[in-house]
Design a protein around this nucleic acid. Structure first.
Lengths: 114, 114
DNA sequence: ATGAACCATAACCATATGGTTATGAATTGT
DNA sequence: ACAATTCATAACCATATGGTTATGGTTCAT
């Protein structure tokens, strides 16, 4: 059990900020549900212009929430759920009710596989 | 297992927005760790002015992340971790890696007390 | 070769955001 | 009664944010 000092955690900050915007969250949700997509495809469902989508993707990229892959003239983006870890860790620390539930299960697992 | 349409979830929106700011997150962390506190007490650890703290508390209040109780001239605030549920639910849906971990533990619990 | 498609960036704009100081209302202490 | 404490709100300000249109560089199709 690692104890994290409440001092500004840069990684967590990026993730929290990135997911604060509903349009950005929708883009991430889209990538999570329907898998890898081009900017063009994302734009069609985003409700905002292509440059806006590109900028949102840049923010998600800085938070490591998405990765990209160039293929010819199109860029394919995919969600990287592992980058949610800082947010999950934060909830583990400060979400008391939820933490209890989690730790109860955690302890149970440990007792199981010895 | 409830399926939530990705349409703007107002509750989740408030929670995500409220926790996006590091100062606000620090205030919530403070309340979670040290329990109920007055605005004055919170201000001493916040690094910003008292009015700034009050405004942050208003935002947290709208997200239901804190509750308050007037007692004479001071207002006592406390964290309400249950309000984190929308964020946890969102992670359950879109945090693939984490979801697996969670469901594995969830299933284990069911088999135990089943 | 030329035009269309795809994407990122630049330039710009309106509004939101997070901070400040000033102030006032209510409560407490002297 | 009067001064001090606590808190919220008002007024204000600088900057961040999220959107737009314009543009240019690649890549693909014809």
């Amino acid at each position: 059990m690692v104890m994290v000092h409440p001092v500004a955690n840069a990684k967590a900050n990026h993730v929290f900020r990135a997911l604060a915007d509903p349009t950005r969250r929708a883009i991430f949700e889209n990538l999570s549900r329907r898998g890898e997509q081009t900017v063009h495809s994302l734009t069609r469902h985003a409700g905002v212009s292509q440059p806006a989508v590109s900028k949102h993707l840049t923010v998600l990229k800085r938070a490591r929430l998405v990765r990209h892959r160039r293929e010819g003239r199109e860029t394919h983006y995919r969600a990287d759920a592992d980058a949610l870890a800082p947010m999950v860790n934060w909830l583990e620390q400060y979400g008391a009710f939820w933490r209890e539930r989690f730790e109860r299960l955690e302890g149970l697992l440990e007792r199981m596989d010895g």
